[in-house]
C-alpha cells in the first residue's frame, strides 16, 4: 500500500522505538565484557543486528545512511588494527599481549584496561564485519531475482 520501501507502519514504529535500545544494549555488553558474560563478540553481533533490523524495516537506503558500506569496511579494518595495536602495546611490558595498562579497581567499569580496549576493538570488527557479511549476501540474492 505505501510506496516507500520497507515494511508496514507498525513494524516501522516499533523499529524506531527499539533500534536505539538494541544498539545501547550491544554497547553495554561490550563495555561490561570484563565484568560479566558477553564481551566484544557478543556485543558486536548485537550492534550489527541493530543495523540489520533497521535495514529490514526501512529498506537498505535508510540503513546505509546510518552506516554505509565503505564506512563499515574502514571501521572493520580499524577494529582489527586497534586490536593488534593493543597486543603490540604489551611489548612495552616485555611480552606480546602483556597487561601493561594497569588493572584498575576490581568490579568497576573502568578497570582491566587492556581487556576493555580489546573488547571495543573486537566489537568494531565483529559489528561492522557481520553487518557487511549480511548485506553482501542479501544484495547478492537481490541481483538474481532481477
Amino acid at each position: 500500500m505505501n510506496k516507500e520501501p520497507g515494511m508496514t507502519v507498525i513494524v516501522k514504529t516499533v523499529t524506531r522505538l527499539t533500534v536505539g535500545i538494541i544498539l545501547m544494549y550491544g554497547i553495554y555488553i561490550v563495555m561490561h565484557g570484563h565484568l560479566s558474560p558477553g564481551g566484544g563478540f557478543a556485543g558486536g553481533v548485537i550492534i550489527a543486528l541493530s543495523f540489520v533490523h533497521l535495514m529490514l524495516a526501512y529498506g537498505k537506503e535508510v540503513a546505509f545512511k546510518k552506516l554505509s558500506m565503505p564506512v563499515a569496511s574502514v571501521l572493520e579494518s580499524m577494529g582489527a588494527i586497534l586490536f593488534i595495536s593493543v597486543a603490540f602495546l604489551g611489548l612495552v611490558g616485555g611480552y606480546f599481549f602483556f597487561h601493561t595498562l594497569g588493572k584498575g579497581e576490581p568490579f568497576s567499569l573502568l578497570s582491566a584496561y587492556m581487556v576493555l580496549f580489546s573488547n571495543i576493538a573486537i566489537s568494531l570488527k565483529v559489528g561492522c564485519g557481520l553487518f557487511l557479511v549480511l548485506i553482501t549476501i542479501a544484495l547478492a540474492g537481490k541481483e538474481i531475482k532481477k
Partner: peptide, 16 residues
Amino acid sequence: PLFVALPLTVSFLIML
C-alpha cells in the same frame, strides 16, 4: 610472535 602479528597487521592495513 612477529611471524604471526606482522602479516596480520599489514593484511588489515592493506584492506584499509
